[in-house]
Nucleic acid binder design. Structure first.
Lengths: 232, 232
DNA sequence: ACAAAATTGGGACATATGTCCTATTCCTGT
DNA sequence: ACAGGAATAGGACATATGTCCCAATTTTGT
């Protein structure tokens, strides 16, 4: 994490996402702009929540880690999304891991400051509730999908989600970053099976594997496979 | 649904669950006590939210219904829990189905009244946020579990969840109500497979099936199977 | 009461996924 | 450069689950 002391950039993001409309008070004094690099971890299961975050640039990966070491992808976060909404009221420990997929910018507000200056602000609380409602809705949806669809579909969806919309034919290098093993855990399957499925997709000419990095050959076919299922 | 015009009972529930502590204003005038019978549906996917509910007695079953007709159990609700928290701020349509498993009592407040009298009440909003946070946490958890565990475990957990804690050895007649087919859908599996798994448990002497109703023979073994996984 | 419809039980087989294992390749510290 | 450990690729087999199908039983409408 690097702190960005750029008042203009902070103001730009606040304007871009109308952050001030979520508070009655001016919260600028309590906001810090931070940058996380690709692959960097933003928070971990078990941590005490220190900052309430607005994700204003970059894509984040949210996943759980279970006792037995297994983990599962919960969602991807794109701007504007918030981190800490689940925990900041209850005081519970953080319940998932969040990693930055590319360089991302977050605006952090210390939990104490949120409590002191926005804890009784109905505008802010309403915003948080709408957000939580949205998350609950999407996760309910993906729960069903996860259980009801095959790994092939989930993989297709995963790839589409992590590849930026623009760079359709570009190599998906993010996958190289996360190892195949890690990717298997994220998708809630075994390394062996993920390997098998990717191999099958390669045989069908939909993707290719070359020294560990995966390239999408037939983006349309992949999208077709994923169907409606999207992790975002 | 039957309306219960029993001021004393309403007051009892309010006291029992300290409902007035969730509001700054006295909300009694806007509360209606209602009763739903076993198997009765409380709300459906696609409905417009009319009431914000507190579940004060009885157990509710919350599940999704997907486009292709498949559905999946999301959670069971016991008192004190709330319904409508996901939708009341966003104005979105209801996102799941809720059925009453036994006779249940709910205190309903019209959404308009909630907005008018509690929409800016930080005490109430804080309460809702804590609740949403809790739900998001538990569903994240069960998402992982659903994906990572076998139907046998999920079935065990399901049975334990719907059988009241007291009546360990009693027939679980709720299962007779919901047909095997419905139960299979709830658990996100096929009828055939559910049947197979129940048969296996019957062979092991853990449950018995007699004209469609399931009885638990070895409650401890079932609990052992379910492990930590509980749908509540 | 009886025929039609729904529910249940289960065989046979296909597919999805997991476990175990073994080479091979790639990276990394020294 | 080299040894050792991680990451990759995939064979062989077991298990979980799905699909299709049909017979037996129960429920239901008339």
């Amino acid at each position: 994490m690097k702190r960005i002391n750029d008042k203009n950039l902070l103001d730009f993001y606040i304007g871009e996402y109308k952050l001030d409309s979520f508070f009655q008070k001016d919260m600028r004094p309590y906001m810090s702009l931070m940058s996380f690099e690709r692959g960097e971890c933003i928070c971990n299961t078990g941590d005490v929540l220190e900052y309430f975050y607005f994700n204003v640039a970059g894509k984040l990966k949210v996943y759980t880690l279970m006792e037995n070491g297994k983990s599962l992808l919960l969602r991807f976060n794109k701007p504007l999304s918030i981190l800490g909404d689940v925990e900041f009221m209850s005081g519970y420990r953080i319940k998932c891991n969040v990693d930055s997929l590319n360089e991302s910018h977050l605006i952090g507000i210390k939990v104490d400051d949120i409590h002191k200056h926005a804890g009784n602000d109905p505008v802010f609380l309403n915003f948080v509730i709408r957000n939580l409602g949205y998350k609950l809705y999407t996760i309910s949806n993906s729960t069903s999908i996860n259980l009801l669809y095959s790994l092939e579909k989930r993989f297709a969806s995963y790839i589409i989600s992590i590849s930026s919309e623009e760079s359709n034919s570009k190599d998906i290098n993010e996958i190289k970053t996360t190892s195949m093993t890690e990717m298997a855990t994220l998708l809630g399957t075994s390394y062996r099976h993920l390997n098998r499925v990717i191999r099958e997709l390669a045989d069908k000419g939909i993707v290719t594997k070359k020294n560990g990095s995966i390239s999408v050959v037939d983006y349309a076919a992949l999208k077709e496979l994923a169907g409606g299922l999207l992790y975002e």
